[in-house]
């Protein structure tokens, strides 16, 4: 036997293929209305229905804004971490790691406690007299974006920091020694070298954000509905399985296409290995 270890693959392969990938396949078939009379009517409905288009647009807009903010903040944290003493770096790393590992429900709950009308932020502002009425901080896009940025910043920090740490410091020394100012060195040398990691981290954050369910459902409070929550409503409340299945396929295809781009840019193994 030339492949004595091939049997080792079977239990996991059987479990994942039989009980995960085949059900996914069935969901895809369902989105085309089954084998016997396949049709594209659910996909046509996505293209024709204004309310679904609004959901897709809202999702895209929120995820784009979230990604831009998360990557910007993540870059700043990674940059600071790469230029700190070891003790300070460890402390900053802990500040990123603890929230990273914290349950998504706990985080959403905490933001709800902070941001709702009778929440801590509004009560404090009212007490100091800075505002006369509570600010609408949650159950809108603002609240969803805050919660999502909070979830996604660590996913941006880790790959960007890894790249910064592996950089050859002599590059910057060379630039400085031929007379470039610190700002020029940053713009012409440091930034281009870290840009692939920034792009990769951004795409990864975007992909995660597209599929978000818990944070938008809790902080959007039913008023901001993103794609995942809409899919769940289609199944649980309006019982439109065909529509839910076709929207799932759209979400899945978008996710896989973006991850394929990530793997071309940085190598998906490295990014996933860091998470």
């Amino acid at each position: 036997m030339r492949q004595p270890y091939i049997g080792f693959l079977l239990p996991a392969a059987f479990l994942v293929c039989g009980l995960f990938l085949i059900p996914i396949g069935q969901l895809i078939i369902l989105s085309f209305d089954g084998f016997t009379e396949p049709s594209l009517r659910w996909y046509a409905q996505i293209l024709e229905t204004g309310s679904i288009q609004r959901i897709l647009w809202t999702t895209f807009r929120i995820v784009t804004i979230t990604t831009l903010i998360a990557v910007l903040l993540g870059y700043a944290v990674a940059f600071a971490m790469a230029h700190m003493g070891p003790r300070q770096r460890l402390l900053l790393l802990l500040c990123v790691l603890v929230p990273f590992w914290l349950s998504v429900l706990v985080r959403a709950l905490a933001w709800l406690i902070l941001l709702r009308n009778n929440g801590i932020v509004n009560e404090t502002l009212l007490a100091t007299g800075l505002i006369g009425a509570p600010l609408p901080l949650v159950r809108n896009e603002f609240g969803v974006i805050i919660g999502m940025v909070h979830y996604l910043v660590p996913y941006a920090v880790f790959p960007i920091f890894a790249t910064m740490q592996n950089m050859d410091g002599r590059l910057m020394m060379a630039a400085r020694s031929v007379g470039a100012s610190p700002l020029r060195t940053f713009i012409d040398v440091y930034l281009p070298v870290t840009l692939p990691a920034v792009f990769g981290a951004g795409l990864l954050v975007f992909v995660f954000g597209l599929g978000f369910f818990v944070t938008p459902a809790i902080l959007g409070g039913g008023r901001v509905v993103m794609l995942s929550e809409y899919v769940s409503i289609s199944v649980l409340q309006t019982l439109r399985w065909g529509l839910a299945a076709s929207l799932s396929v759209v979400l899945l295809v978008a996710t896989l296409a973006l991850l394929w781009i990530v793997s071309k840019v940085v190598g998906v193994r490295r990014l996933l290995g860091n998470a």
Binding site: A13, L19, F20, I24, G211, S248, L252, L272
Partner: peptide, 27 residues
């Protein structure tokens, strides 16, 4: 072979949770 199997078996981590949820619910 390792590449193909790994790609298939990493799917549950990569697929959006709601998609996995619908598929598993029906199954």
């Amino acid at each position: 072979l390792a590449g193909v199997v790994a790609a298939l078996l990493l799917a549950p981590m990569i697929f959006p949770p709601i998609v996995s949820a619908l598929a598993l619910y029906r199954a």
